[in-house]
Write a protein that binds this DNA or RNA. Structure first.
Lengths: 407, 407
DNA sequence: GCGACTTTGTCGGGAAGGAGGACAAAGAAC
DNA sequence: GTTCTTTGTCCTCCTTCCCGACAAAGTCGC
């Protein structure tokens, strides 16, 4: 019987001790993470960024190359003087993941490589409220097949975004109100249908949107960021100290159900005066006098009206924008983020909402934090969640290339 | 000219590479942190917790002993079988810090050693509103002198808790509304007055209360925790992934100024309907028909009434407790903490507030998170901030014993 | 009480990884 | 073309931890 690495050694919760071999793994991870997030650089810049010497960088880059994860291509003359440094970059198709987004009115699937390169993708629209769990699994399987064809060998993970409360450990969806799902073992179902020998990570849509915008979009480089996703409901994804903040059970970021008005309208959650009842899609459509049951189509009509200078529509949007600003003020006072990134319909309507939003925010947010916070629309649009799902699925590999690459 | 450790090597923001010597520093830190937080253990348990071997533990413990930070005393027979393991513990007076709390009605100073041992402490009460910045500095200096006498040699830091917005880098107090302070360079002033050759860390009172309760009190071991400090205002300190969450500018946790009622009373911050106008000390005293300007004394009278079964007082407290619960519901929905720890007057009144608070919370918090969150009174009482200040001041030493011990 | 067994501490040898310095290579500036 | 600067490679050395053997110090069963 071969001795496993002594289970009682791993049991403890606190920080672990470091060993020479863990140093190597750490350093490989640092290098790959940097390339993955910041794109190609020279070896010398890698050295400067990590504090490692040229000898070490050379050996580490060599090992990453042997694992098929990075390539060294041309040269760059960079800072004028001296010998040009050779450029090292991730080998995008060297390790790929399948990114999936299950949304209320669409399903999207993409194959994403290292560095966040989208190698192939497809999105299909659906009438709202028609996506069953079984249907979603079938659809994802069908769509993924051809996209994966060329990459099956190098598939290292699957990431799935779902608009609901998810248990990360096994991808169990406790509830997804806007899909009408309850207690769906999505991780297991997808595993059985996809038949891929890799881990399937399921996570909340707003959390992955936050991850996507933080790594690849408008929140890039921020230490602390809040992503506010305006879909049917409002959800938030939090990034703290550069890392996703999930909460004890993974349910952090339910900003839509923060109380903003004790006398407000009843909410689907059973309470009343929740932020999303005042600032959500339904509130916006109702304010504009539009049918509240047809989502994206109605929003598009509203956008057209705004662009054509419809004063009544502008007023309706400003009224909702005020509530959006008040709610963001709450987030700012509580979390003091560097940047607030807006997703979903909040991103689409940002330029129309900005004045009312900013003035409500200025009234609510304490003076000092107000000086630093920026509220910006996301830059990835509907791809934010897919990029987040890809980042989630790639995480193990990027943090520990040797362990993940060997497996 | 001696070469500094090459500044451009440290410039980068990302994760740094590891070297053999950084491994040693990391491991020393892991060991000391574990002893500091969890108290005395056997060498073998240290090994099991950190994943390091006996040989390594022996050498590391030896080095920590040589630095005067840990001691090996008796033995313990622990698990019956086998040779008893010798017990290793921090040497409490081996490294001490000065912990200071500047509050609205008192000033407290303590000398705290490794492991959180309070070696000496003193607190003096003050009439509300009489503490000037100069007065605070003078008083702290006077109080610290005799307390420090026996420990000056081993002083490694100073931590200061202030009820205001503080810039951590240099201890500049932007504003402390309840002290009536604006733009006070407290860090510099204390440095000039105390004349100690160590770093002076100034931080927000609620942030340090959170740190104290997390390391030594009711939040021990929690990965995610919210500390709600009910003083004149309401402030929160957040712990995320076991570490303090400060926000981009260090102003995170201003929960008192989260909007809970658009039609609420005007707040000192210039807005209206903030949580603290409905759930703060003033709201509580007003609801009970007491003078709102005498703080602690009035609160004590109210507590006496409650204990004597005064129905009117109980009703007034329940009314405020409802708002406390609603606000905590917001924090829970947003952050999904494992535990919410109440400090200040919220701790004192917890048993009287509990029913109304819990029922309001249950109505607001989403079902799922509600299953796991606990709302408990702090266990350190007025010492929470001092313990937090001590932890802050000891942090550098605990994380890197060699570097800090050598300095 | 005595031996068997178990766990812990110590010591010496070994391995892994990164640092440092010498040297060659590759361009820019003059 | 020469000089200067920076980069890449190679080799040796140093630090740190691991491993295995052995001694030490208890408990348990008889």
């Amino acid at each position: 019987m071969t001795r496993e690495p002594s289970p009682d050694r791993v049991a403890a919760s606190g920080r672990q001790g470091a060993t020479p071999s863990s140093v190597r793994r750490h350093n490989l991870g640092v290098l790959l993470e940097r390339l993955h997030l910041d794109g190609p650089t020279s070896r010398s810049r890698l050295g400067a960024a990590t504090g490692l010497t040229r000898s070490t960088i050379a050996e580490l880059v060599g090992e990453l190359g042997a694992l098929g994860l990075v390539t060294e291509t041309g040269r760059v003359q960079s800072s004028g003087f001296g010998r040009p440094s050779s450029v090292v970059d991730v080998d995008a198709p060297g390790a790929v993941v399948l990114a999936v987004e299950l949304a209320v009115e669409s399903v999207a699937v993409a194959v994403v490589g290292l560095g966040g390169t989208v190698l192939a993708s497809e999105r299909v629209g659906l009438p709202r409220g028609t996506l069953t769990a079984a249907g979603a699994v079938r659809r994802v399987t069908t769509m993924a097949g051809p996209l994966l064809a060329a990459h099956r060998e190098r598939l290292t993970g699957v990431g799935v975004a779902v608009p609901g409360l998810v248990r990360r450990s096994d991808g169990f969806v406790h509830v997804a109100p806007n899909l009408g799902w309850d207690d769906v073992p999505l991780g297991r179902l997808l595993g059985e249908a996809l038949r891929v020998p890799v881990r399937i990570e399921v996570a909340n849509e707003a959390d992955l949107g936050a991850l996507g915008e933080h790594r690849r979009g408008a929140g890039r480089g921020a230490e602390t960021m809040v992503f506010v996703s305006g879909d049917v409901g409002i959800g938030a994804g939090l990034v703290v100290d550069g890392r996703p903040m999930l909460g004890a059970a993974g349910y952090a970021g339910e900003a839509g159900h923060v109380l903003v008005d004790p006398d407000g309208r009843p909410c689907t959650c059973g309470s009343r005066g929740c932020w999303e009842t005042e600032a959500g899609e339904v509130a916006l459509l109702r304010a504009a006098g539009l049918d509240t049951t047809h989502g994206h189509a109605a929003l598009s009509r509203l956008l057209v009206r705004l662009d054509s200078g419809d004063q009544q529509a502008a007023l309706a949007v400003a009224g909702v924008a005020r509530w959006v600003g008040l709610g963001i003020g709450n987030l700012v006072n509580l979390l003091n983020p560097e940047v607030v990134v807006l997703g979903g319909f909040l991103q689409q309507f940002h330029r129309h909402m900005e004045p009312a939003l900013e003035s409500a925010l200025a009234a609510r947010a304490l003076t000092q934090p107000r000086q630093v916070v920026r509220v910006v629309p996301g830059s990835l649009g509907p791809l934010a969640q897919l990029h987040g799902a890809a980042e989630l699925a790639l995480r193990d590999l990027v943090l520990d290339p040797w362990a993940a690459g060997a497996g």
